[in-house]
């Protein structure tokens, strides 16, 4: 049997995510049942029965979210310890890049967490409002979420199976050598960083003016830019090593777990945007979006500015 699969962290990871998927499938069955029978004009007794059924989905999602966050942390920690087993991999990034699905998997897990938090919010709003205004949104969103989770389960299984303890990986090599690669539209990393800050300013503006469509597009762009700038630019300042380009090591103890804050704030920022776009765009939502994005930008830029001020030069 594959040594990766039987290592405690990995088998636990797979065991738990399979268990979660099993329960979510059960909830999916109920969701479909509700969707097929739901009728706005049906008798109140039937509505009540369906409402009770949908509480199961709510409960399962809540527990699943808890487990997903736990698994995310476990995933990051376990790919780090797996580095010991995989020849050539020096840290988590080496492991993630040794499997074809690594980065996609991390991104997917991130999106699932944001969407799950959002789903719980939709559910709460739906119950608070009279007449279940978000009922079908909730149900379809659940199906979408379910598909994403099933996909990430599948990718994860493939990812761990494709890891090999025999073939050496070229650790972080594609990250290391990307000095001259261009990213989007042939921009260099410096230009991307500038774009990152400009997008941030536009987000503030869009939030202030309550332009929902504009804001959602910007936030997607910003998410992508954040990933690139964190990996290829900001992380090098956090590590104080121009060649160390890695999105995982910032989660490590050596860097005071700063990564959890950075990613956590980014999750919150995206969640507030989703909330604001779908529900009411009140003043406090506005200030939450602005605070979360600003905090994120400050967190990632802090070391970079600090480095510049203390050394008067860039890496």
């Amino acid at each position: 049997m594959n040594e990766i699969l039987i290592s405690p962290q990995v088998s636990l990871e797979l065991f738990l995510s399979s268990l979660v998927l099993l329960f979510l499938s059960f909830a999916l069955y109920h969701t479909l049942y509700i969707l097929l029978r739901y009728d706005k004009n049906a008798t109140n007794a039937l509505q009540y029965e369906l409402e009770k059924r949908s509480l199961l989905t709510t409960t399962i999602i809540k527990v699943a979210l808890l487990i997903s966050i736990f698994l995310f942390i476990l995933f990051v920690l376990s790919i780090d310890t797996l580095a010991e087993l995989i020849p050539g991999a020096m840290c988590g990034a080496g492991v993630v890049n040794s499997g074809i699905y690594g980065s996609l998997l991390i991104a997917l897990k991130f999106i699932v967490i944001v969407l799950a938090i959002f789903w719980i919010q939709v559910d709460e709003e739906d119950q608070k409002a009279k007449g279940f205004p978000y009922f079908s949104l909730k149900m379809y969103l659940y199906i979408f979420l379910y598909l994403l989770i099933a996909l990430s389960w599948f990718l994860e299984l493939n990812f761990f199976m494709s890891l090999s303890v025999e073939e050496p990986v070229l650790c972080c090599s594609n990250l290391y050598t990307s000095q001259t690669t261009s990213f989007m539209l042939g921009m260099s990393i410096e230009e991307i960083v500038v774009a990152f800050y400009i997008t941030y300013l536009f987000i503030l503006l869009a939030t202030y003016l309550k332009k929902k469509v504009f804001l959602s597009l910007l936030s997607i762009l910003f998410l992508y830019l954040s990933y690139i700038t964190i990996v290829y630019f900001f992380s090098t300042y956090i590590y104080e090593l121009p060649t160390h380009k890695c999105p995982y090591c910032i989660l490590a103890k050596e860097y005071y777990f700063i990564g959890y804050f950075i990613y956590g704030v980014l999750v919150m920022a995206n969640y507030y945007v989703l909330y604001g776009v779908v529900f009411s765009f009140k003043e406090h939502t506005k200030s939450k979006i602005i605070t979360a994005y600003t905090l994120f930008v400050v967190l990632v830029s802090f070391k970079y500015i600090y480095y510049f001020l203390s050394n008067n030069l860039f890496l």
Partner: peptide, 8 residues
């Protein structure tokens, strides 16, 4: 009160 959701 018949049409109230469980929450309400």
């Amino acid at each position: 009160i018949v049409s109230l959701s469980d929450y309400h």
